[in-house]
Design a protein around this nucleic acid. Structure first.
Length: 381
DNA sequence: AAGTCGTGGTT
DNA sequence: TAACCAAGACT
């Protein structure tokens, strides 16, 4: 017999109005769950973090996947788990090794927060990842999404895991016109998931919503004709799939002018500097550089002066080796890269080293500084 | 609430 | 090609 029980999904909209003043969305909850999970069982991608339910591996994958594409994460995940296979292994690793394993993946505080939290699990929780919302949410780097993802996927606990996919998919299915760019909107979708989630298989339910968003219910040109739950989709029936979700656009970011130099000594060793422990590219290595303020004059002199003030390093700045544009999320670096010379007897420190060219690849650099190094190598040919 | 925090792929 | 986007968290 068909189960045509309709379940009212009450949405607590922003503004705190009473529930019965809000739009009421009706959906065949069990039919939706079956269609969604059935599709996921048949069509899910074979991904390395889906081979078992090890909470540590689920955790690592979820951190890596934050704002990062699956195809990008896969090779990083393989290498990371090979190098740090357990909570104990990551707990005991040097931070520089962890950052090196994360090199190129971006959002580097994720790596440091992950290791910090893993140490806490190792010491405070005897190496067992917490299996409840309260404790797991206290871990550094584990926010509402990641907490729900680990709890549901690794432990089968019916907690919402609302990411951008889930908000896009459910905004269409339930016809929710709230602005998903607002932080407060996530709660509306969490409440919707709490009412819709399968208690028999919360893991597949959550993963299926995200998989559907990645493969079918895409931001542009959703493949509605292939969608396993289009019969349940309000936007499909109303013809509004291309209008949802509502997402206000962000304003354009600022430009920052940078002068950087690869300084070598008489032995060909290269001067590198470790960045501050907070802020942009925290604790990564870099080639000495400064931000150039208006009126953009004498930048090589400014760089030389700052090397003396900052490091007591006497340097000479020579020819430009390249101009690099590097785009971050919220700003763009316009880098003028030079090469130069530094005295071999310069005083080194924990955050300032002279290393041979062959040793460079042992240090973790951002992609922006890898581009500078590339220009230097080209200039040496 | 809004800005910070990376990178590479897509449109 | 410039803008947008991708399994967010932190301040």
């Amino acid at each position: 017999m068909l189960n045509l029980l309709k379940v009212a999904v009450f949405l607590q909209l922003s503004g705190g109005e009473a529930l019965n003043n809000n739009p009421l969305k009706q959906i065949d909850k069990h039919g939706f769950q079956e269609d969604l999970i059935g599709w996921f069982e048949a069509e899910q991608r074979d991904l390395p973090w889906r081979k078992d339910k090890d909470p540590y591996k689920v955790w690592v994958s979820e951190i890596m996947l934050q704002q990062t594409r699956v195809d990008t994460v896969i090779p990083y995940f393989h290498r990371f788990i090979e190098q740090f296979p357990t909570i104990k292994a990551l707990s005991e690793a040097e931070e520089d090794k962890v950052l090196k394993a994360w090199e190129g993946l971006g959002y580097y505080s994720r790596a440091r927060n992950l290791q910090f939290a893993v140490k806490e699990v190792h010491e405070k929780y005897a190496g067992k990842v917490p299996d409840n919302p309260k404790e797991i949410s206290t871990l550094k780097g584990v926010g509402p999404y990641t907490a729900g993802a680990i709890l549901s996927i690794a432990y089968g606990i019916p907690e919402p895991a609302v990411d951008g996919n889930v908000m896009r998919v459910l905004s269409r299915i339930l016809s929710i016109w709230e602005d998903i760019a607002k932080a407060s909107t996530r709660k509306i979708f969490e409440q919707a998931v709490r009412e819709l989630i399968s208690h028999e298989n919360p893991s597949f339910f959550n993963q299926a919503l995200m998989e559907l968003g990645a493969l079918i219910c895409t931001p542009t040109s959703p493949k509605c004709l292939l969608c396993p739950v289009r019969d349940h989709c309000h936007a499909f029936h109303e013809g509004t799939t291309t209008e949802l979700p509502i997402k206000t656009k962000n304003k354009k970011h600022r430009q920052v002018r940078i002068a950087a130099a690869v300084f070598t000594d008489e032995d060909g060793r290269v001067l590198i500097h470790k960045r501050d422990e907070s802020g942009l590219l925290a604790n990564l290595w870099e080639f000495p550089n400064i931000e150039i303020l208006l009126p953009y004059e004498h930048e090589t002199d400014q760089l030389k002066e700052s090397m003396i003030e900052g490091f007591h390093a006497e340097v000479r700045v020579n020819e430009m080796i390249g101009q690099i544009e590097h785009v971050f999320s919220h700003l763009t670096w316009n880098i003028n890269a030079y090469k130069g010379k530094v005295a071999a007897d310069m005083k080194e420190a924990d955050d300032l080293k002279l290393v041979s060219k062959d040793e460079i690849d042992q240090y973790a650099f951002s992609v922006s500084h890898q581009k500078i190094w590339q220009k230097f190598l080209e200039s040496e040919v």
